[in-house]
Design a protein around this nucleic acid. Structure first.
Lengths: 333, 333
DNA sequence: ATCCCCAGTGTAATCGATTTCAGAAGAGGT
DNA sequence: ACCTCTTCTGAAATCGATTACACTGGGGAT
């Protein structure tokens, strides 16, 4: 039923080897034959089997992309970038959603290896895991995105979370806020840990002690942001400002503030990590740390393709600088 | 390097046929052998090559998912659902973003077929295309999601767009609005066409003539919604209400209203298609048509798996009812 | 004239699984 | 003892490409 390379060879009156050479654009084929083969391909509407090819060369032209939350616009933008780059370079993307589960992540890695993917881009659910060490040792091209992997030298594309959190919290302090709460993701993922570190450093640098009561860490999802913020706002001594650790936490936090009927920044100031398209709707405008999401995805894909092309190149860590956009939600007290 | 079925066979002292049978859970293998094989698999940490398997059985356990905009939360939710169902049933998902381009869509379909996918789920960029007819005729399992394909009997999962648009526009009319504008997606996609049809029918049913000036159709993206709405609001005789045809158009429209400094619903009432998580932030609350996005994705995946299992079953069209949530943005004049 | 080299081509092995078919071993019937 | 099933197992073909290797024929050097 399906037309194979054999059919093409027969039609063109050559061997399959020649057809293969023509398709691969290899030298050592007479123009006359090349044309006959191309014609035959056209006439038969031949499309090579990627599966057969993958089996033979022991590598598919698929790259695996494992992200921790497909419903998070941050990752969506990353996916889009990776897909764009991949497609342009003749690769396709197999997308997996680890859903913040380390087990799922590991299972997907195995699955993708079983599919003989050329490489992997992953936003690791946890910083400390030996999965990546094993991958790197087995010479599997892999790059981490958004979140760092520790103790394993590998390609990474991350934002400068410590610095960005430091700056934005310092800004809150400069504007007169002292009881600054942090609604963060769990520190298993490096983003959670680093954004906390930036927060802590900023407080310390300005002589403010960290009040553990004001630090909430949970799943980087809106429900968790909602719950944490409600708790914070109901404290005896509630915060005068809230710093949220990612876009979904921000949504939850804003909902909590909304439900409590509080005003920003009069009752509580606000500064958030991650920018989103609809944020212009929030009044007053939110002070945010904007990450170059598409650029991160693009860079990760490029790093991966480079490593696939040259597996021995030294691992590279790309640190992208977020932009801090100051608006009214954090204006001076 | 990698351990193959041959290695397992050797280790267990059996043939590859037996190993294969054990893996596939087929009958006619003595328990003693079965155990030896399972042990060998364990000891060698053997994982079968999905590529080799795909080549032999002429079908991979991948399903292709082509959506028109990966950055649209509607589709994100669909992707999530499809991925959940697929994963649970032992399939993986290859995600492609057609970016509203019919060419890209066609290219991805070819690509996925080259990968021997078991089936396809697509949100078609255009209602009229013979691609799907050819697929169906070639017995390729395929289901359309969100958008209809015409002239080809195939599995589909769509919302009742005509009805929902009719109801929500009727609601605007009932609340005293007469110059109701429609900011819609192009009618190439059935969603755009059907939501317009519902709009038109509602006006007609209430003796209002459609003013072509008030109907704007463009890419279902926020820039287009923004542009269209600005134009509408700057008309000599501007609309007293706006109905938007999807979530991204809504974002753009709201931005335009915001930029013009207008109030909802005093200056212009508002009703939107698609609900989004952050909508509680919009004040006053928006009247929206909420679609069961996850359910749509789930249903589509289930239909596809059923068709894969039984290619001859009659095509099924699943019509899901959206929910209309009335809020203050459309309150009576 | 002889030899060498190289561009151009084909034959056949190979990748790692599944599956057909043939045959062995043992149970049961006559 | 012989035949017939049934159950179990393995040898080998197969899927559709890529590629190592062998071979051919002609041009250039000697």
């Amino acid at each position: 039923m399906t037309v194979t390379i054999e059919d093409v060879a027969q039609r063109a009156g050559v061997s399959t080897a020649t057809v293969s050479r023509v398709i691969a654009g290899k030298p050592y084929v007479r123009d006359a034959l090349r044309i006959r083969v191309l014609d035959a391909i056209q006439e038969l509407n031949y499309r090579p089997s990627r599966v057969a090819r993958s089996l033979r060369v022991q590598r598919s032209s698929i790259i695996g992309l494992i992200i921790s939350d497909i419903q998070n616009p941050f990752f969506t933008s990353v996916v889009r970038a990776v897909e764009d780059v991949a497609q342009q370079r003749g690769f396709s993307v197999m997308l997996c959603n680890s859903d913040e589960s380390t087990d799922k992540e590991a299972a997907y890695i195995d699955l993708l290896l079983d599919e003989q993917v050329s490489g992997l881009i992953v936003s690791p659910t946890s910083t400390n895991t030996d999965i990546y060490r094993r991958l790197v040792e087995a010479n599997v091209p892999v790059v981490a995105i958004d979140r760092r992997v520790e103790n394993t030298p590998m390609d990474m594309v991350v934002g400068d979370n410590v610095q960005a959190a430091y700056e934005v919290v310092s800004h809150l302090i400069a504007n007169g806020y002292r009881r600054i709460a942090a609604v963060l993701g769990v520190p298993d993922a490096s983003t959670g840990a680093e954004r906390y570190e930036g927060y802590e450093r900023a407080l310390n640098a300005h002589g403010i002690e960290v009040d553990p009561e004001l630090v909430r860490q949970g799943m980087p999802r809106s429900e968790s942001g909602h719950r944490s913020t409600l708790q914070l706002l109901q404290l005896q001594n509630p915060p005068d400002a809230i710093f949220t650790g990612n876009n979904l936490l921000t949504i939850g936090a804003l909902r909590a503030i909304d439900e409590m009927g509080l005003r920003v920044p009069e009752d509580v100031a606000f500064a958030a990590f991650d920018e989103m398209e609809w944020m212009f709707l929030v009044k007053p405008a939110l002070t945010v740390v904007a990450q170059p999401t598409y650029a991160m995805g693009k860079k990760a894909a490029e790093l991966l393709l480079q490593r696939i092309a040259d597996p021995s190149r030294p691992p590279q860590e790309v640190l992208l600088q977020p932009t801090i956009k100051v608006h009214e939600s954090s204006r001076a007290k």
